[in-house]
Design a protein around this nucleic acid. Sequence first.
DNA 1: CTGAAAGCGCTTACAG
DNA 2: CTGAAAGCGCTTACAG
Lengths: 360, 360
Amino acid sequence: MVEKRVTGRDVARAAGVTTATVSNVLNGKRNVGEATRERVLAAVRKLGYLPDQNGRSLRQRNGHAIGVVVGKSLSNSRYGRTVEGMLQEASDRGYRLSLCRNRIMPNGMRDYLAAYYQCNIDGVIFMSHDTEGPDSESLQTVIDGNIPFVALDCQIPSTKYSAVDFDYRGGAADATCNALSYGHKRLLYIRPSVNNAQETLREEGVRQACAEANATENLIVIDVDVQIQLDDEFADTRLEMSEDPTHSYAFYLDTTFRKLLSGRIRPGDAIVCSWPGWSAIIRSAFPLPNVMFTDLASESLSMSGTDAFCVMPNAQAGKVCVDTLVSLIEGNAPQSHLLPIRCFDVHRKQIVNERPTVES
Amino acid sequence: MVEKRVTGRDVARAAGVTTATVSNVLNGKRNVGEATRERVLAAVRKLGYLPDQNGRSLRQRNGHAIGVVVGKSLSNSRYGRTVEGMLQEASDRGYRLSLCRNRIMPNGMRDYLAAYYQCNIDGVIFMSHDTEGPDSESLQTVIDGNIPFVALDCQIPSTKYSAVDFDYRGGAADATCNALSYGHKRLLYIRPSVNNAQETLREEGVRQACAEANATENLIVIDVDVQIQLDDEFADTRLEMSEDPTHSYAFYLDTTFRKLLSGRIRPGDAIVCSWPGWSAIIRSAFPLPNVMFTDLASESLSMSGTDAFCVMPNAQAGKVCVDTLVSLIEGNAPQSHLLPIRCFDVHRKQIVNERPTVES
DNA sequence: CTGAAAGCGCTTACAG
DNA sequence: CTGAAAGCGCTTACAG
């Protein structure tokens, strides 16, 4: 596309040196005389030389790029935020971010593994979608091939690759503890009827906090069928494409909550919801006095519809993933990280860092 | 990392041919005898050969990758959705997606231009953030260098590069027309006090629809100061990092709306909001009867707090961008696209495709 | 401290 | 229809 590419040879000629010296000046691998160095740098500036990364990668046997498996989930702002954190950290560390899916290629291999073997990427960050991790066959390939691999939010610890996870249990416990501190009689915990590690841990956290506050008998757990969202990869694509707008997630939830919760919420209840935005929908459907809402996760507009919510450290998770992966690529041992989830109380305007004293 | 890389030479040896033949079989560039072809493919399968893309790119002078400038905006679900559309289309077309920012490098060049000159990417899709496009110097570089370039949502048409834009005017007109069709006395249009193409077009659409319905005297335009969000790149990072949670966007908006709109909303009003989620916040702050809300944009949970909203064709925009860019890379002329924005009415449960008849 | 040369893995004219 | 060879642009031992 460009008429005349500037190459290392052009710079060498202009500076009166060889391409080896140009390379050594730019990469600082070995000592170069000050005068020569200056001449080379001047030529680089003058010609606007930017080394071709393909030649570099071919020779060095690494691509200076990280593959990020985003699955079907990038429209979820949570994952977007995570990728943003990754992007910042990766560019600071001289790595590019290359997006992958989790699709099976014609040869039966997942696309992100193929990208690795094709030397497009030096390692993989696998972002799970609702703690759904990589398939076991791919995981075995990762282990056998010693592929630098970070599993984000997959809840599958291993000594063979790195893992970054969220402390769902602790976050839920803190949030529940905060809710109980307001002295409401009952605690309704509304969770999706899906069985994954995330929801199991959250429920454990809720139960644990209730037990510690001697409020186990006040806890009512309500399961919500969210099948529609989990089954249909293209639910909101259909909305977007105007093909079947009534299947929208929020519309479905609103309808579902109205049916499911009718007559079950009472004034004076404390309500803890597993997923972001649920508080606002339920509050708007059941405008009862003296009900305290908490979401165990948050989206951008969460604050307007709830009294407290957990803040997912998504950007931080992205950074930690990149750090951990680069460490693996450099030959270090795998690490595991468990990131804390903080609960923010809208009225008290503060993070509930430690569990507040219960006033029951 | 991998102990023993499988190379084209290994395949050639196993099949009793030269590397040239292996390449020709895999790329289908020239005719290869059926028997030879079978032998090569068998060897490829047996050895699990995946060609190194660096060697390929170095020789072919292109990287089979597209750069996407995501700026500071990927945590906005709208842009995540767009990237999702790009990813699907790009992988279908054999291109990788490489994330770029819009940062100035030490040499004074934007990172996405550097990536192009380093042959990391074959072209650029520039996703604007609130119709904020590339700086004019970079744009000149793009034009002078004949760099394949697609400006998404930048509202800066040119014959030198491609542009994909949204029909904000048409969407706003349709939505306003739909709101007027309910026969409310007044129409309050609540828009951010920012001067960009997007907001200008939306207001034009609103005014145009009012004029066509002879309702211009019923229109009241209210500007909202959203300075906090536009000024502070890290507003929600601070929230996430627990550094200053009270500056959250939603919290700020809630407070602002309560002050700004106090006493100005009356039962029986129709309210049109420029940005997604505003309807829900305002409705919850002013629970008045018989008020009809419309958002001129949508997020995932929009439906629960509003009566009608515009649906941004984000995934489609992503696909169109990739198609357009690939066409440019292949040497075709630049194109311009204007994507329609549909308005969805929650009660009528349908897309307002054509403007409904006004019943005033 | 610097140069001449080899080679990373691929594709593509050039011969036959 | 297939092979032998050149070369994409870089980095890195190897000499000096």
